[in-house]
């Protein structure tokens, strides 16, 4: 099958590539751009491990073809820390609040939380749980993930978060 030329911005960097139309965006990111932060967990759009930020939306990159992302602006977990290596408040929050264990869901979870906080900078616990319901975690039971997001929300809002990880 003829390949298609696509041009897109990934983590602030312009990328041009040839892709087969059927190449899934997750495979394009992982195999062609070597961005292995987004993971493949379920392949049926349930687990959210492949979540990235695309044009200001949280997207499960296993359910989109790379050709559909032509022209898009994408951020993956690899694009979250500052250029000087300073961790994003969410990355810091996940560590401080013990919001991860095996780490497999973490990149997708953080990317989803990032968009959630853009849309709702100070969510309630209820809103966080509802907002991350497209991301499955098998290790943490979510309780500390909620805290990690609250930590980040507080930090981004300039308020220190006091509660410790359980």
């Amino acid at each position: 099958m003829a390949k298609s030329q696509i041009t897109l911005t990934v983590n602030g960097k312009k990328e041009e590539a040839l892709v087969e139309p059927r190449t899934l965006l997750i495979h394009f990111l992982r195999e062609q751009l070597n961005l292995t932060g987004p993971h493949i967990g379920c392949e049926t759009t349930h687990c959210g491990a492949c979540t990235i930020d695309l044009n200001g939306m949280s997207v499960k990159s296993c359910t989109m073809f790379a050709v559909q992302a032509n022209g898009a602006d994408i951020v993956t977990i690899e694009g979250m820390a500052a250029a000087d290596g300073t961790l994003h408040a969410l990355q810091e929050g996940f560590r401080e609040m013990h919001g991860l264990q095996c780490g497999f869901c973490t990149p997708g979870m953080i990317m989803r939380a990032h968009r959630l906080l853009q849309e709702n900078p100070s969510p309630t616990e209820e809103e966080i749980r509802f907002g991350i319901a497209g991301n499955l975690c098998r290790c943490t039971g979510y309780q500390n993930i909620v805290k990690a997001i609250q930590y980040a929300a507080a930090k981004l809002g300039g308020v220190p978060y006091r509660e410790a990880a359980e």
Binding site: T45, S58, V59, K60, R112, G134
Partner: peptide
């Protein structure tokens, strides 16, 4: 579905 699905 879930938030990600609803975006698209």
């Amino acid at each position: 579905a879930d938030p990600q699905v609803r975006y698209l």
